[in-house]
Amino acid sequence: MLELNLNQDNQKIQDNQKLWDKAINFFRKRSLWMLHYCTGCGAMELPPTMTSRWDVERFGVGPMATPRQADILLVTGYVSTKTLKRIIRTYEQMPEPKWVLAFGSCAINGGMYWDSYNTITNVGEYIPVDISLAGCMPRPEAVLDSLLKLMDMIQRGEAKAYKKYKENYAYYKANQDRIFKNAEPVLESAKLKFEYKEQNSSEMGVEK
């Protein structure tokens, strides 16, 4: 019943698309720029995906060096608490529409680091993820297949996870704060570090 309702909702989205939206999505899906945040070993699968054997650029997908011009954020492997801060900042700098692909078991459920004190077990709790690639690590064929699937979702008007970030920002922000309160600021201003120490002192009941 749930699958039937999802199919009906997706059909309504497609039916409600205006002709102009369909035209924009047609060209948008053929000009996707990837920002690969190489957090783990999934980054090793990207060179063969982009070079001659699989050649993802023949579908209009290419690499981008900065978040300001990127459409897709690739989280390629495990994510530590400190790295998560940079991923969130990078994601928020990207212009809309934007999409996120989570590579491998580590980004989905922690993988081999599922019980580690400083590793994130589910990236989707902190930023919205459009497609998750299972495996350790997913092969270039899987990466290519996921990008083609994302292109179809964009064409149908279904790839709108980035809107959930604004609509449910309180949920994502609460998860982010829950993690970050346990980690001292890195490469931040002295003011932030002072506020972090003050906050921790008050929570632990330490007198000033």
Rank of each mutant, 00 (worst) to 15 (best):
I24K: 14
L144K: 08
N118A: 14
N122G: 08
I13W: 09
V56M: 15
C136S: 06
D177L: 14
K22I: 13
D115C: 05
M94F: 06
G205S: 11
F103D: 07
G205C: 13
E141P: 01
L147S: 03
S202K: 15
V206T: 11
A65L: 09
A174L: 08
K149S: 11
L4N: 11
L46N: 05
Q176W: 06
I72C: 02
L84D: 02
L35Q: 01
I72G: 00
A70Y: 01
N122Y: 06
S201H: 09
F194W: 12
P63G: 03
Q176Y: 10
I13G: 02
K197L: 14
Q14D: 04
Y171N: 15
E45P: 00
F59E: 04
P67G: 14
P140M: 06
I179E: 10
S202P: 00
V186P: 00
I13M: 13
W33Y: 13
R53G: 09
T76E: 04
V186R: 08
D9F: 13
R58Y: 11
E96M: 11
C38M: 14
E92F: 04
N10R: 15
G40M: 03
L101Y: 00
A190L: 14
P128R: 07
G111L: 08
L4V: 10
K197C: 10
S202M: 15
Q176F: 09
K85V: 12
G205W: 05
M151A: 11
V100N: 02
P47M: 10
S31I: 03
N182T: 11
L19W: 12
A174W: 10
M112L: 11
A102M: 03
V123I: 15
S132F: 13
Q176D: 01
P95M: 07
A65H: 12
E45F: 02
W20M: 11
Y113M: 05
L84T: 05
R156P: 00
I88E: 06
M50N: 03
Q93W: 08
K160Y: 09
L2V: 08
A142H: 09
W54G: 00
L84C: 03
Q14N: 03
L84W: 06
K208M: 09
S132A: 12
